[in-house]
Amino acid sequence: MNITTIVHITGFALILIGFWGMLTQKNMIKIILGLAIVETGVQLVMVAFGFIDGRTAPILDSAVELSKASSLIVDPVPQALVLTAIVIGVAVNALMLTFVIRLYQQKKSLSINDYKDLKW
């Protein structure tokens, strides 16, 4: 098994575990944790797509000869994307948590089943 596949499988497993948590856990904080795990999984998968075995980081320091850079480094694009994705993910999670805090303040419950006032 090559490394890309190993990381992919890890990432996918995290995605599935995260979704499983989101679908079964009643605690809203845990649901957000589930989402965070899914996000981590997706980010892992993304970086793995850019990985090329035996190459170095996309930093063109003395170790990398400029003219041969394209055959020496891993794909920098997924890394750039993941960088953005991580920050955005954390921002969203933090915002979600503030919603939970405010919800909790009103009903004194963290269970998702208690917030079904709007329906049909």
């Binding site: 890309t4 596949t5 996918f12 797509f49 090329i52 850079a69 394209s70 794909d75 920098p76 694009v77």
Partner: peptide, 23 residues
Amino acid sequence: VATNVAPNYDLTGVAKTYAEQGA
């Protein structure tokens, strides 16, 4: 997806352009 991904051996597309011209 997992069964169909082949590991990369080379940079393609825009990544290659970045690697060649970025610096």
